[in-house]
Simulated assay, not measured.
Amino acid sequence: MAKIAGVDVLLYVTDDKKKEVAVAGQTGTDLELSADTIDVTDKNSNGWKTALAGLKSWSMSSDGFVDLGENSLPLLRKSFLDRKPIPVTIRMGESTDVKGVTFSGDCYITSFPHSFKQDDAVTYSLDLEGATGLTIKEGADVTVESLKAK
Score class of each variant (00 low, 15 high):
101 V>G: 06
150 K>L: 11
18 K>Y: 12
140 A>E: 14
50 T>A: 12
132 T>P: 00
63 D>L: 02
92 M>C: 13
73 L>I: 05
55 L>W: 12
91 R>C: 09
3 K>Y: 14
14 T>K: 06
40 V>N: 10
71 N>T: 08
135 T>Y: 09
149 A>N: 06
6 G>C: 05
105 G>Q: 04
90 I>T: 02
27 T>L: 10
46 N>V: 08
104 S>M: 11
38 I>V: 10
9 V>G: 04
91 R>A: 14
93 G>Y: 07
34 S>M: 10
117 K>G: 07
142 V>P: 01
86 I>P: 01
118 Q>M: 01
144 V>F: 09
1 M>N: 10
17 K>T: 12
23 V>S: 03
118 Q>G: 10
126 L>Y: 05
26 Q>W: 09
140 A>F: 07
64 G>F: 08
97 D>A: 11
90 I>Q: 06
131 A>L: 01
49 K>N: 10
39 D>R: 04
74 P>G: 10
28 G>E: 15
47 G>C: 07
125 S>E: 13
51 A>K: 04
54 G>P: 03
91 R>Y: 13
138 E>C: 12
136 I>F: 01
37 T>D: 12
30 D>H: 11
109 I>N: 03
59 S>C: 04
111 S>F: 07
120 D>Q: 08
46 N>C: 13
102 T>M: 13
59 S>D: 10
85 P>Q: 13
128 L>Y: 02
134 L>C: 05
44 N>Q: 12
8 D>A: 13
110 T>A: 13
42 D>Q: 04
22 A>K: 02
68 L>K: 02
147 L>D: 12
17 K>F: 09
129 E>S: 06
141 D>P: 01
85 P>Y: 10
40 V>P: 02
60 M>C: 10
116 F>H: 08
57 S>Q: 03
21 V>P: 00
12 Y>S: 00
110 T>I: 06
49 K>F: 05
110 T>R: 04
100 G>K: 01
49 K>V: 01
16 D>I: 03
10 L>D: 14
43 K>F: 09
93 G>R: 02
77 R>S: 12
13 V>P: 03
82 D>I: 01
133 G>M: 05
95 S>I: 07
45 S>P: 00
132 T>E: 11
25 G>I: 01
8 D>F: 08
127 D>T: 06
83 R>F: 14
101 V>T: 10
145 E>G: 04
100 G>R: 01
57 S>V: 00
7 V>M: 15
48 W>A: 15
89 T>E: 15
108 Y>R: 02
87 P>F: 14
144 V>M: 06
48 W>E: 15
64 G>T: 04
112 F>T: 00
1 M>E: 13
91 R>G: 10
107 C>N: 05
128 L>H: 04
40 V>W: 05
24 A>C: 10
71 N>A: 14
29 T>A: 15
15 D>L: 00
113 P>G: 00
79 S>W: 03
54 G>R: 01
80 F>K: 03
146 S>I: 07
80 F>N: 07
75 L>N: 08
34 S>F: 11
50 T>S: 12
105 G>W: 01
147 L>M: 08
121 A>N: 09
91 R>W: 12
111 S>D: 13
111 S>K: 02
